[in-house]
Design a binder for these strands. Sequence first.
DNA 1: AAAACTGTTCTATATACTCTATAACAATTA
DNA 2: TAATTGTTATAGAGTATATAGAACAGTTTT
Lengths: 126, 126
Amino acid sequence: MIIKIEPQSDIPIYTQLTNQIIEGIAKGEIQAGESLPSVRSFAADLGVNMHTVNKSYHQLEAKGIIKIIPKSGAVISSPTQSIDTVSQRMSGALRSIIAEALVSGLEREQIQELVSSIMNDLNKKE
Amino acid sequence: MIIKIEPQSDIPIYTQLTNQIIEGIAKGEIQAGESLPSVRSFAADLGVNMHTVNKSYHQLEAKGIIKIIPKSGAVISSPTQSIDTVSQRMSGALRSIIAEALVSGLEREQIQELVSSIMNDLNKKE
DNA sequence: AAAACTGTTCTATATACTCTATAACAATTA
DNA sequence: TAATTGTTATAGAGTATATAGAACAGTTTT
């Protein structure tokens, strides 16, 4: 899994890391049951602070995507939350983006196609 | 158009305002050519600072959604950006959310339905 | 023409967030 | 036993958010 951090981005480093780990899982590059690197080694690889990686792991745990086992490691979880819970959380995030897309002149079909192409891209198990 | 600001949210007030104005435009509650309230009167209505509203307006202008005419007002624009430009910008924002939805166990069809239901809801001209 | 209002700009303050840097602890692992 | 693990604590620098007040020049209204 290739992680690219852009320090100058307005997106916090720990969120960039969280997003890219999620993408890695979606692509199947990491699977449920497997472990993420330790916060120290991962931080060294990325050239960032240990606490930054730690914050990302806790962000992933809050989303129910990994399980942090104290003194041991961070393990990818199988989906556990109910569909309704996930849908509700996703809906709030999607709403603003879709509204902006509509206002910016995108047609409904174009938005659906955009979503499809993204899902296709995320299904590539590299 | 009803604006609800949650001061305790982790989303900045000016972004909350930006998103809800965009939703208002998407719903047709405000149309292209019409003006937004002045930063001072809007701030007074919402109970926030003038500069917070001003920042929201500039955020909307950066997205190409309004045009700020100095000493005059903020006018809703008609979509002007190319489809490719908008698609590219939306794609980046959508990617993280869709990846999380997939990892959280949502099926492709369920995500498409979620997008559809959001677009239906945004089309209600209240 | 005068008054009110417009977005803009400037300074200032308080709070919170981000990121880095050390250090130490207790439990797991090699 | 030694190394590694996540955790916790403190500290500092830099940035972001939000508020507040003031002043300016152009626009709009009266």
